[in-house]
């Protein structure tokens, strides 16, 4: 049985962030080794400023109230939890180059890598998830 969970985060909205970090923290808390590969808009989720201003899908703004009522943790809190639980964050070098971003633009403790870095981790992971 695989003890690894591999996640690709390729979208940059608030809902995407919850999908990625909820699964990642839950897996890490269940003794799984977890890595997330952040690519394209997914880089927003670990961007120092961007992660505090993730957009809701158009027309879904009214869910803000539901988030507050359900006492859902802030994304920054989930990111901190994930890192504390040992989740590995890999930022996609190619997308960073395209977007003109450097490691300075991201939260501390991330790695930068390419597709092969992720594939090497994911080759014996189950499940592998894409958001």
């Amino acid at each position: 049985m695989s003890n690894k969970v591999a996640i690709i985060a390729s979208n940059g909205g608030l809902f995407d962030a919850y999908k990625v970090f909820n699964i990642a923290t839950a897996a890490a808390a269940s003794e799984k080794e977890v890595a997330i590969f952040f690519t394209f808009e997914g880089l927003n989720l670990i961007h120092k400023q961007g992660m505090y201003a993730l957009p809701m899908p158009a027309g879904a703004e009214h869910y803000a109230e539901g988030f507050a009522k359900a006492n859902v943790p802030a994304i920054s809190q989930l990111v901190e939890m994930a890192q504390e639980l040992g989740v590995k964050f890999i930022a996609c070098q190619m997308t960073m180059d395209v977007m003109g971003l450097t490691t300075e633009d991201f939260i501390d403790g991330i790695e930068v890598g390419g597709a092969v870095t992720f594939l090497e981790f994911a080759k014996d992971a189950a499940p592998s998830l894409t958001f």
């Binding site: 909820n22 923290t25 839950a26 808390a29 269940s30 359900a70 006492n71 859902v72 943790p73 989930l78 939890m81 639980l85």
Partner: peptide, 13 residues
């Protein structure tokens, strides 16, 4: 109490 997914699991762990 009062926490939503995934916090109960994270805190329990």
């Amino acid at each position: 109490k009062g926490l939503s997914c995934p916090m109960p699991i994270v805190k329990t762990k």
